[in-house]
Structure formats: structure tokens, C-alpha cells
């Protein structure tokens, strides 16, 4: 296929995932501005971070007066799956020259990773033109939706009246539930939940984030590893 056909095919691959991510881009924009960030800061987050969960965690923690280093650590922790993704994507894009690899990793999101691996497994070949097409649809739509959400967010005077305050916890809950097939999922979540609630009540915000998370992570290290080791593909798609 020619480069243009590859690029168009990439645009098509990225379109449906971009549409399903669109509401979250808008949610991010609206919540961020309603929470006190400027439209510029909100847009800057989407342009430079380009990771929905990280950005929403960021906004949640900016609102809680958490120390900057802890915000960055939390954002990395939430985005940690990307370490696994980039390891799995490396053989798929090994034929890209280094600068194109670096661009490819910047555009790597859950759907981008999934589409690239799907294409690789069907032996359709992952070209840079295809990858860029799919990545740009996601990137551009994400930023447009952020701006729309941020503009609307400016008119929101009372987020609770619109029920915006429950959206983030529920969104994070949906992400937590997405990990439920991992080994020792229930004990880890139970200990993190209990730890964070106790820390919230006793030590106070923002320490509940790190205390609760460390409790869950330590438990995972202490418990015997899960009975069955999951297959490669299952692990990366979670």
C-alpha cells in the first residue's frame, strides 16, 4: 500500500476509539476548569500529557493541595501500564527509525496500542504512516474535546448541582474494576481502600493517596503470587 493509503487506513483505525474517548476529553476539560485550572493550563495538559486517566488524576490531586512531587508520582503510577505497553510495542515498531519511534511512543495510548498489536498479529504490517494516522485522530479529537469541555466548564458555577463531583470517583472506580482479573485483586483493593479511608480520617488529605496505595502494593508483594500466570496478551490488554 502507498503511504497515503496507509495513513487513511490509520485514520479509520483510530476513528472509533477516538469517538469513545471523546466524552472523557470533554469531561476532563469541564472538570479541570470547574476545579479552578485555566483553559490554557487545561489545554496544556491534553497537549503535553495526552493520557486521560493521568490527566483526571492530576486534576483530582490539584484540587486537594497535594505536593507537586506526589502528583507526579501518582500520575506515573496510574500510567504504569504504559511501561508494559512500550515493552510489548517495541518488537512491533522495531523497523521505525529512532525519531519515529520516539513519536510513536508519545502517541501510544490504550486504543493505539491495542490497534497496533491487532494489526501486527493479523500480519498487516504496522507502518509509520498507518500508526501516525491512527495516533493523530486520537490526539486531535482528544484536544478538541478538551477545549469544548473547558469552554463549557467555565460556565459551571456549582459542580455539585450538575452532579460533576461523582463523575471522577466513578470513572476511577471503572478503571479499578478493569483490573479485576489480576492476581490478588480483591485483597489489594480492599487494603488500599481501607488504608486510604483510615489515612483520610486520621492523617488527612493528601496523604491518603500514598498511604493507601503503599498498603495495597506491599500486600501484593507479601502475598503468594497468583496461582496461574496470565498469558502475554491477556496481561497487556487489561
Amino acid at each position: 500500500m502507498s503511504e497515503t493509503t496507509e495513513f487513511t487506513s490509520g485514520l479509520r483505525s483510530g476513528f472509533v476509539p477516538a469517538l469513545s474517548a471523546a466524552p472523557f476529553g470533554m469531561l476532563f476539560g469541564a472538570v479541570s476548569v470547574a476545579d479552578g485550572q485555566s483553559v490554557f493550563e487545561t489545554a496544556l495538559m491534553s497537549i503535553t500529557i495526552f493520557a486521560g486517566a493521568s490527566q483526571l488524576v492530576g486534576v483530582e490531586l490539584f484540587g486537594q493541595r497535594v505536593a507537586p512531587w506526589l502528583i507526579i508520582v501518582s500520575i506515573v503510577a496510574v500510567n504504569f501500564r504504559h511501561v508494559l505497553y512500550s515493552a510489548a510495542l517495541t518488537p512491533v515498531i522495531s523497523h521505525f527509525p529512532l525519531p519515529k519511534k520516539m513519536i510513536a511512543f508519545f502517541l501510544m495510548t490504550d486504543p493505539q496500542f491495542a490497534e497496533a498489536l491487532k494489526r501486527h498479529e493479523k500480519e498487516q504490517g504496522v507502518t509509520f504512516s498507518w500508526y501516525l494516522g491512527a495516533g493523530l485522530v486520537l490526539y486531535i479529537l482528544w484536544n478538541i474535546m478538551t477545549l469544548i469541555g473547558a469552554t463549557l466548564g467555565g460556565f459551571i458555577k456549582n459542580p455539585e448541582a450538575l452532579g460533576l463531583d461523582v463523575l471522577l470517583p466513578i470513572y476511577f472506580l471503572s478503571l479499578v474494576m478493569g483490573f479485576r482479573k489480576r492476581p490478588n485483586y480483591l485483597p489489594v483493593v480492599a487494603v488500599s481502600a481501607l488504608g486510604s479511608i483510615l489515612a483520610y480520617a486520621i492523617v488527612g488529605s493528601p496523604w491518603h493517596v500514598s498511604i493507601g496505595a503503599v498498603a495495597g502494593i506491599l500486600l501484593a508483594a507479601i502475598l503468594p503470587p497468583g496461582a496461574k500466570r496470565r498469558r502475554h496478551s491477556e496481561r497487556f490488554y487489561q
Binding site: V188, A193, G212, A215, G216, I217
Partner: peptide
């Protein structure tokens, strides 16, 4: 990831 996200819920 699950441990960190749980502390936000």
C-alpha cells in the same frame, strides 16, 4: 494501578 486508583475512590 489498582492500588493507586482505589485511593481516589
Amino acid at each position: 494501578p489498582a492500588a493507586v486508583l482505589t485511593t481516589l475512590v
